[in-house]
Computed example of a mutant assay.
Amino acid sequence: MQNIAIAYHSAHGHTAHIAQQVCEGAQSVPGIQAELLRAEDLALNPNALLRYDGLILGSPTYLGGVSGPFKTFMDATGGLWKTQQLKSRLAAGFTVSSLPAGDKQSTLLSMFVFAMQHGMVWVGNPILPEQHAGVPYDEAANRLGSWSGLMAQAGHGSPADAFAPGDVKTARMFGHHFAQTLQRLGAAATLQPKDKVAA
C-alpha cells in the first residue's frame, strides 16, 4: 500500500471540495491510500508528512499566490528542508480561483518551487483539454488548459460545490494520474539493479 497526502487550505469550502475529488480519484487506484490533511494542522506538525510517499498540495489563489495559512504550512517545513527528509517523494499541486485565469499559474509555480527545494519530484497535468474533441466547454476535462498542475474555477460567493462538471472530472482524473505515477515509479525502483560498489 502506498500513501498519498492531499495537503490543502480552504477558506470557503471550494478548495476542500476539489481536494475531495482529487482524493477520490487517487483512491480509485488499487493499492493506494489517500488522506486529506488541513494545512493548518500540518503547520503545527509538519513531520506528519513523513508517513506519505506522495504529496498533493492544494490552495486557493489569493492575490496571485497561495493563501496565508498555506504559506504558514510551507514555512513550517523548514526543518524538513534542512534535513531533506521529503527528498525523492512525488509532489503535485492544484488551485482554485473565481476567474478563469486569476493568476493561478503563479500559485502553482510557488508550489513547484517549494517541492523542488525539498528535493521532491513534480507530477504535472497531462490531461488533454476535451473541448478540442467536441466536448462542451463546461463538461470538458482540463477546460482551463493547465499543464503544470490542476486548475479549477468557482464563482465568487458561490456554493462550495458549484464547479463546472469538467473541473470535478479533471480533479478526479488528476488524482488518479498521480496515484498511477506513484505506483509506476515505485515499481520501476524495485526493478533497478542494485548499484555495484567499486572494489
Rank of each mutant, 00 (worst) to 15 (best):
N3D: 07
N3F: 10
I4W: 08
A5R: 07
A5P: 13
A7T: 12
Y8H: 03
S10M: 05
H12V: 06
H12Q: 10
G13V: 09
T15H: 03
I18E: 06
I18F: 11
V22G: 02
E24G: 02
E24L: 13
G25P: 02
S28F: 03
V29S: 09
V29R: 04
P30I: 05
I32V: 15
I32R: 06
Q33T: 05
A34T: 10
L36V: 13
L36Y: 14
A39Y: 05
D41Y: 09
N45E: 07
R51E: 12
G58E: 00
P60I: 09
Y62K: 06
Y62L: 05
Y62V: 05
L63T: 11
L63W: 15
G65V: 02
G65C: 00
V66F: 08
S67V: 03
F70W: 03
F70T: 01
K71H: 01
D75G: 04
D75T: 09
G79V: 13
L80M: 02
K82F: 01
Q85N: 12
L86C: 03
K87E: 14
R89G: 00
A91P: 12
A92Y: 11
S97E: 04
S97H: 15
S98K: 01
L99I: 03
Q105M: 00
S106K: 07
T107F: 06
L109E: 13
L109P: 00
S110G: 15
F112H: 13
V123C: 13
P126I: 09
L128Q: 10
L128C: 00
P129I: 06
E130H: 04
H132N: 15
A133Y: 12
V135G: 04
E139V: 02
A140Y: 09
A141P: 00
S146V: 14
W147L: 11
S148N: 09
G149I: 14
G149D: 09
L150G: 08
G155P: 00
H156P: 03
A164W: 09
A164M: 12
G166Q: 08
D167R: 03
D167C: 09
D167N: 09
V168T: 08
K169F: 15
T170Y: 00
F174R: 00
H176A: 10
H176D: 11
H177S: 02
R184H: 07
A187G: 01
A187N: 10
A187S: 03
A188Y: 10
K194L: 11
K194Y: 05
K194Q: 14
K196E: 14
K196R: 11
V197W: 08
A199R: 11
